[in-house]
């Protein structure tokens, strides 16, 4: 399965990423190889195999509805590139 530049652009847009033409060429090759590998996997007959949703054979792992201390606001914001008045500050997004 061959990946084209349009698909690379779509994936980049979804991830809010920008690629150079040089990078796009590299990714076309790499993505195509990954998909070829997946095609190969898909050729295996799995008709009699139950779909696996998790690699651990565990279920119903819960925690009780109890409160634990949160971070302080200073801690919460400490990784933020920008902040103001206790908020994270981000480039304007508007609908």
């Amino acid at each position: 399965m061959k990946v084209d530049e349009k698909q690379i652009d779509h994936i980049a847009a979804l991830g809010r990423l920008k690629f150079t033409d040089q990078q796009k060429k590299i990714f076309i090759g790499q993505f195509s190889k990954i998909l070829e590998y997946v095609e190969k996997v898909k050729s295996v007959d799995i008709n009699k195999i139950e779909p696996l949703v998790h690699t651990f054979d565990q279920h119903n792992v819960f925690r009780p509805d109890e409160n634990k201390p949160s971070l302080t606001r200073e801690q919460a914001l400490s990784n933020a590139p920008e902040q103001t008045k206790g908020f994270f500050k981000v480039p304007r997004v508007i609908e």
Partner: peptide, 8 residues
């Protein structure tokens, strides 16, 4: 104003 504020 060129920014939005986020409260999580």
């Amino acid at each position: 104003s060129q920014y939005s504020l986020v409260d999580l």
